[in-house]
């Protein structure tokens, strides 16, 4: 008996070790593309072409790629546009979707039912089935493309259904109506009651939705490419794309541009890792 446990123990250890090494190997494989981009962003073109794996270079390392990429892709401008659009759209989605979801849960009338059903059903519509009429209405019809606020408006609209859905599930199961009634009887208005009593209780869901929406807005390419046609309005993905088209043969500069583009989110990830992972899982499981 004791002997078998012991044998089982050693065998388990060996298995654990093999498992660990397998995970490490797969992990390294997953990370290689990032490592290569980072490594080559500091190298000169000749060295990159000769051997993208080489750590030792003939021509030496350089920061020129970064200087050039930063300047030529108008990094600060694009970063600012991304920040403005993502920030404003996220705030609007959070405010409007939480209020809408609250209304849907508490006022069970025809309006609520119809719009809730429409939002739920709309989640299966692929963006491709909307983009052409969208451009037709807002471009040819209203002529309001090429404004950052138009993009903010559209981001907000597209994010509504998922956000309302997740908020609604949380409010329905987690917010007791008695709390609001107490505040309401104390003379607070409905709006005041919502922001003072209900909204703070939604914090975990709000955190989840902020993370999901920020990631979606920040990284989106297709919608911004349809709305923003002028260079000075470009978000980071748009300016990366345009930049790549012009400098595609200049590998070092391209690699530097890619590092610059992903750096803001990766730095954020370094600090908010736990929250981001939790938020993403919660979002996927609830919707």
């Amino acid at each position: 008996m004791i002997k078998t446990t012991k044998v089982g123990g050693t065998r388990k250890k060996v298995l654990d070790m093999t498992g660990f090494l397998a995970v490490v190997a797969v992990f390294l494989l997953y990370m290689v593309p990032f490592a290569l981009v980072l490594l080559n962003s500091f190298k000169k073109k000749r060295d990159i072409i000769k051997n993208p794996f080489s750590v030792l270079t003939e021509k030496g390392y350089t920061l020129d790629n970064y200087v050039k990429a930063f300047d030529k892709m108008d990094f600060l401008k694009a970063f600012g546009n991304s920040l403005f659009i993502t920030g404003l759209a996220t705030i609007l989605v959070i405010v409007f979707s939480s209020m809408t979801a609250y209304y849907f849960t508490r006022a069970k009338n025809t309006f609520s039912k119809v719009f809730f059903a429409m939002m739920a059903a709309s989640m299966i519509i692929p963006f491709q089935a909307i983009m052409i009429p969208l451009v037709s209405i807002y471009g040819a019809g209203l002529s309001i493309l090429n404004h950052r606020l138009t993009l903010v408006f559209m981001h907000t609209g597209f994010a509504m259904s998922m956000s309302v859905f997740i908020y609604q599930g949380f409010i329905k199961s987690g917010i007791p109506i008695s709390l609001e009634e107490a505040a309401y009887l104390d003379g607070a208005s409905k709006v005041k009651t919502f922001f003072a009593v209900v909204f703070p209780l939604l914090k975990p869901t709000t955190a989840t939705l902020v993370i999901l929406n920020v990631l979606a807005f920040w990284n989106d390419y297709l919608l911004p490419s349809l709305v923003l046609g002028r260079k000075e309005l470009y978000t980071l993905p748009l300016s990366t794309y345009a930049f790549y088209g012009t400098y595609s043969a200049d590998y070092g500069v391209i690699m530097a541009a890619l590092v610059l583009t992903v750096a803001p989110l990766l730095i954020l990830y370094l600090f908010l890792q736990r929250h981001i992972i939790d938020g993403v899982v919660a979002g996927a499981v609830k919707s």
């Binding site: 209304y103 719009f115 909307i130 408006f153 559209m154 597209f158 409905k190």
Partner: peptide, 13 residues
């Protein structure tokens, strides 16, 4: 509460 969100959703989707 509901109209702003629903209008934007309606207008965009």
């Amino acid at each position: 509460f509901a109209l702003p969100g629903c209008l934007i959703f309606g207008a965009v989707v």
